[in-house]
């Protein structure tokens, strides 16, 4: 029900606690840039962080460690070949 894509933060305007500023970031992926809002993001991102964008809002800042674990778990699951048990 909700398309959202990860993009990298390359510019940040405003700050987390300055309520009157416009909390926005410029995000980028494969040469495409978009200005997004940071009003609702769970963790204020740093430059270089990846955020998940939905309808012009960052909804989550990726933790690179979590993302790595995510990929590793998938790779491990994929590496399980027939015969070494337990999985099914």
């Amino acid at each position: 029900m909700c398309l959202a894509v990860p993009m990298q933060v390359i510019e940040i305007n405003g700050s987390e606690d300055d309520f009157l500023s416009q909390p926005t970031a410029l995000v980028e992926s494969d040469g495409i840039k978009k200005e997004v809002r940071l009003d609702i993001v769970d963790r204020w991102p740093n430059l270089g962080d990846y955020v998940i964008i939905h309808a012009g809002f960052a909804i989550h800042t990726l933790d690179p460690q979590e993302a790595k674990t995510n990929l590793r778990l998938l790779q491990e699951m994929a590496a399980v070949t027939h015969g070494d048990g337990e999985t099914a």
């Binding site: 894509v5 990860p6 494969d30 998938l74 994929a78 999985t87 099914a88």
Partner: peptide
Amino acid sequence: MKYLSEFRDSALTKPLVAELQRFPA
């Protein structure tokens, strides 16, 4: 796109398909 393409890669998905298909019907 980073964090998308890795999770689409057929080198990863094909073994997962095989794994899925190993479950008894």
